[in-house]
Design a protein around this nucleic acid. Structure first.
Lengths: 338, 338
DNA sequence: ACGGACAGGATTAACGATAATCCTGCAAAA
DNA sequence: TTTTGCAGGATTATCGTTAATCCTGTCCGT
């Protein structure tokens, strides 16, 4: 366990100054003459000194670390955001710590505690579901944080997300505009705000086009996820009484498309499909798929901006940014054949 | 910055014990009677106490954190490994900290220092290139670590990787066995051991089949990466004097396949292609592609095992595990037409 | 009744760094 | 000369925990 690490004291001993002076030299205190700083720094480098940031943080109250807490790493979209967050935070003098994963919510609380426990200076939090207790922990501990990608019911706090409602609406308008009357809607995790908002936006579009709810079969998220895991998606596609299919995410849509092809159905001739995520933006060699795109990079960089702002001005009122989304029409939706 | 966090002292004050007793109660010291422990724990929970793990680590010398250092998060394969490492380390009582990314090597050293600075108990390191200075830093600081995915020239240390040489060999044998005589080999980053080993294994196969080096055009990694970034891959495909193409990774192969299709060439009729990574294992809805698969999950779990072992027994001799790879034949290679 | 053993905790001293003060000497100002 | 200023550092007190040691009372055996 790195028993014999070099400490400030060792460096001090080696170059004839006190611990304190060495500390200040290494931090570039201008009150020390250039010559002393250089001498000390050279000694430190020569000896391979590495600051113990635990001790440093403990004393100074600043760690220079930002935690990113996320449940779903299996997601290229997230990887992109991570890259953006990393580069922008690094530029602002912070390091990023990814506390990750597993899809279980208990872990979420554990990770938040862990981040607080390690005295990070702020948290970029991607909540998976509607869980306010997590938020309360951060608030009670005075921890600056920004909620990303999702909103939490009835909680007003710094938040950057895409306009899922508009996304659902666009999907609905696109399909209804082509003349579709009967739909299959394959949901995502039912408690996620994205699912709720997308479905709501979609339903809004349906209403505006005068399509009755009874024409829309909504498959709950758990069933979809379970079927995806079991490779039994096909069962969910019956009965084939719809002409348009909306899916909560591309990672479900693609397997669905394979099933449909396998069943001898042609897209978009027999069935139209519209999806969310536009993975093809990240993996251009995927098959074409009309999909709603949320600009993750913008979520990431706005999130960073809000967080840094919050750290500097703890008393500012909360800020919510809802970014517009956009439909990439890649031709998997067409007018239904009667 | 979380100014007013609850400390042990607060809890102690609230329930009438000393700081030390509270600390021991929360850690479950058996020398304290059950009743006291319960009382203290309840107070701590009620007050929302969160241990300051910085102070704890500083004093005890153990952080319970393992750092994973990686340059390339843009990789599903890596995400899988991460999941495995996380679950296995958690089970052993450790938290995982991902220190990430950016493809520049300078950052690598920064991240290693950062991990040491934060007193992690061990490092799982995915080196990007052949850089021994990084290794030396960990060694000098007595930090247990395991090298994953790559080897570093002339350095013997705990190491888990896949048999890239065998992978290259299998690719070569597969194609040469089908009768191919002229090849295009699109390399990866030239200083990575994977590239070196794969090419070497491939060349070995070529020799065994009596194919002269002059029949193999090797495109250096930088050119490939640059072309991929610029979308100018097509230029690298000329002249079309080969019948078989080997590519260092699927993420290059897929765009290449699109280019070839665009040029009116059919796979495998006109050109055979064999690649590395078998991304389809992670993204099953990708087009078929004959590719060499390295079992990342096994790399991850063996890596964790070696690291835990190293932490417990610092003086054991270094252990190297080279895992076998496997060719997934998905039909993108066929005998050449004369 | 007396020495031990032990339960149940309290005291004290670190861990390695930084913040806040405090000292010392020399040079310029009064 | 005396004062003042300040460059250049040294001292000291924490940060929140945990390790090591020490104390106090009670119960026991002999």
């Amino acid at each position: 366990m790195a028993v014999n690490r070099i400490t400030l004291r060792d460096v001090a001993g080696a170059c004839g100054y006190t611990v304190n002076t060495v500390s200040r030299a290494l931090r570039g205190d201008p009150r020390l003459p250039e010559s002393t700083r250089v001498k000390i720094r050279e000694a430190a480098v020569r000896m391979g000194y590495i600051r113990n940031s635990l001790a440093s943080t403990l004393r100074s109250g600043r760690s220079g670390n930002i935690a990113v807490i996320v449940n779903d790493v299996h997601n290229l979209h997230f990887c992109n955001m991570l890259t953006v967050m990393d580069s922008e935070l690094r530029q602002a003098g912070y390091n990023i710590m990814v506390l990750c994963m597993g899809l279980n919510e208990e872990l979420g609380e554990h990770l938040i505690r862990s981040a607080i426990s390690q005295s990070v200076d702020g948290i970029l939090y991607f909540p998976y579901m509607n869980n306010r207790s997590h938020i309360e922990i951060m608030q009670k501990n005075n921890m600056p944080f920004v909620l990303l990608d999702r909103r939490i019911q009835d909680i007003v706090t710094d938040n950057v997300r895409c306009d899922d409602r508009q996304g659902g609406f666009l999907a609905g308008v696109h399909l209804a505009g082509l003349g579709h009357k009967k739909y299959l809607f394959m949901s995502g995790e039912n408690r996620s705000s994205s699912q709720i908002d997308r479905l709501e936006g979609f339903m809004q579009a349906m209403r505006e086009y005068g399509i009755p709810e009874s024409n829309i079969r909504v498959v709950p998220g758990e069933k979809v996820e379970a079927a995806l895991a079991d490779s039994t998606l096909r069962e969910l596609l019956f009965p084939l009484d719809y002409t348009a299919l909306v899916s909560f995410r591309d990672e479900v849509s693609y397997p669905v498309m394979l099933e449909l092809a396998d069943m001898g159905l042609e897209i978009p001739r027999d069935i139209s499909i519209v999806s969310f995520d536009h993975l093809r933006g990240d993996i251009p060699y995927l098959p074409k798929l009309t999909s709603i795109f949320s600009e993750g990079q913008s979520v990431a960089s706005n999130g960073v901006r809000l967080l840094l702002n919050r750290i500097e001005h703890p008393d500012l009122p909360p800020q919510v940014i809802v970014l517009p989304v956009r439909l990439f029409d890649e031709g998997t939706a067409a007018p239904p054949v009667k």
